[in-house]
């Protein structure tokens, strides 16, 4: 019977039926058993060629696993390598939330807010589904007196492919443009963490050629990120926690001295920057992780600040200002387009 004449079963009904069938089986079901008996497949199963239905099953398995459902494959003992005899099942213990995990109403409130953080980001689907599972537990959260609307954006187009690569330990390729360089450089690395530090997304990665540990600002990736099929191993200590700790250490260690006009916007904001200290002579010591980012920030304060030291920060600010002065002298003409 052609597929078009089979009664139409909604996709979610087929997926739901598959999960139920695989949860209910101890020993697992073969592919043929699944395709010939489970709702949504059985209507399209024939005695002859089921290639299209088998491809459907492969996609469904991926979709289900993406939801965190541990769909596992068991090989028949003594019959390895025979695909037809593979058995599929969802082990209950790995599927169900452990009994001892419960969330108090305060925790539920915090998690609801944590999920809200991603409503515009790449992880919006994930956080929405995490909330469903949280609500599945029946707990309710008190309505907070102050309305919070926190938001993380992962606007950088590189975020999604980098996360896919880091979840699957795959090598990626992209062009990276360092400020001050004339042209981007092609990079080939294994990402191991995506971290947000001081409001910016960074990717920590290992260069498989040199085993060097690198940190890339997503905003400086100027080409699409190509996820290769090449897998690579990373050391066990290559974690997001370590990536953040490395950035914290860098932030802690690097200091610049700036003078800010009293009561200026620059002074108010620099004083709120993490770790800023006012020296006895009134100058501020500010911390930083990247000299170009700091120079951009200091330049934005215009005449309200002077970068005193170190010399390379001062020089970067001066260079930025000089370029801005030159670019805005007189009336705009084609000179401005020289890029």
């Amino acid at each position: 019977m052609p597929a078009s004449r089979a009664p139409r079963v909604p996709v979610e009904e087929r997926l739901f039926s598959l999960v139920l069938a695989l949860l209910a089986t101890e020993t697992g079901l073969t592919k043929t058993e699944i395709l010939s008996t489970v709702q949504g497949y059985r209507q399209r199963w024939t005695q002859g060629d089921n290639a299209a239905l088998e491809r459907q099953f492969e996609r469904d398995k991926d979709d289900i696993r993406e939801l965190g459902v541990p769909l596992e494959t068991i090989e028949e003992p003594g019959d390895t390598g025979n695909n037809q005899n593979l058995r599929y099942r969802i082990p209950r213990g790995a599927y169900e939330l452990p009994d001892d995990i419960a969330f108090s109403s305060e925790e539920t409130a915090l998690l609801t807010l944590a999920a809200m953080v991603w409503r515009e980001g790449t992880l919006s689907g994930e956080s929405r589904r995490a909330l469903l599972k949280l609500r599945s537990l029946g707990g309710t959260a008190p309505v907070p007196e102050l309305d919070y609307a926190p938001r993380i954006r992962s606007r950088d187009a590189a975020f999604e492919p980098l996360q896919t690569a880091l979840d699957r330990r795959l090598v990626v390729r992209f062009d990276y443009l360092k400020p001050g360089d004339d042209a981007p450089r092609a990079r080939r690395v294994v990402p191991y963490a995506l971290v947000q530090f001081q409001g910016r997304w960074l990717c920590s990665a290992i260069d498989p050629e040199t085993d060097g540990w690198r940190t890339f600002l997503l905003s400086r990736i100027v080409s699409p990120v190509a996820v290769t099929a090449e897998t690579a191993t990373v050391p066990p200590d290559a974690t997001a926690e370590r990536a953040l700790a490395d950035l914290e250490a860098l932030w802690e260690a690097q200091i610049a001295v700036v003078r800010a006009d009293p009561a200026s916007d620059a002074e108010t904001r620099l004083l709120k920057r993490r770790g800023t200290v006012r020296r006895l002579d009134g100058a501020l010591t500010v911390h930083w992780s990247d000299r170009h980012l700091l120079a951009d920030e200091l330049a934005s304060f215009g005449p309200e600040v002077e970068a005193v030291s170190p010399p390379e920060i001062r020089a970067l600010v001066v260079a930025r200002l000089a370029a801005l002065v030159a670019d805005h002298r007189g009336t705009a003409d084609s000179e401005a387009s020289r890029g």
């Binding site: 965190g68 169900e96 939330l97 944590a114 995490a130 599972k133 979840d167």
Partner: peptide, 20 residues
């Protein structure tokens, strides 16, 4: 019982908590 979180769902919640 309720299903477990996926690796990405748990990561989204954990990163959200860190952000807050």
């Amino acid at each position: 019982d309720s299903p477990r979180f996926s690796a990405r769902e748990a990561a989204a919640m954990i990163a959200g908590l860190q952000y807050l």
